[in-house]
Amino acid sequence: MDRNEWPLWEVFIRSRSGLDHKHCGSLHAPDARMALQNARDIYTRRMEGVSIWVVRSDQIHASDPEAKPEMFDPAEDKIYRHPTFYKLPPEVDHM
C-alpha cells in the first residue's frame, strides 16, 4: 500500500435494532473518527442504519478460500444440526 494513501476501512451497519451488523462496503479515511463520520454520509443517507462499525481492512482476518473444503464441508454432513432433519408428528411440528 502506498504510504501516502489514506488507509482502507471496511464498514458494517446495523440497519435496525435486533439485526446484526452487515458488511456494506469500504471507504478511505485517515483515522477511525473520520471513518465513522464518512460511513454515516456514504452508507446511511437513506436512514439505512442505527449503528456503524468500521474496521481497518488490514485488521480483518479471513479464511482461506482454498481451504473451503476442510473449513466448511464437514458441516455439510452433520445435517442433524438442522431442525428440518427431524420429522415430528404434525401436532408438535411447530417446535
Binding site: 489514506w6 471507504l27 478511505h28 479515511a29 473520520m34 463520520q37 464518512n38 454520509d41 456514504i42 443517507r45
Partner: peptide, 11 residues
C-alpha cells in the same frame, strides 16, 4: 480534496 469529503460537504 477527497471523494468522501465531497459527500460530507454536500450533506
Amino acid at each position: 480534496p477527497v471523494l468522501e469529503e465531497d459527500l460530507a460537504l454536500a450533506n
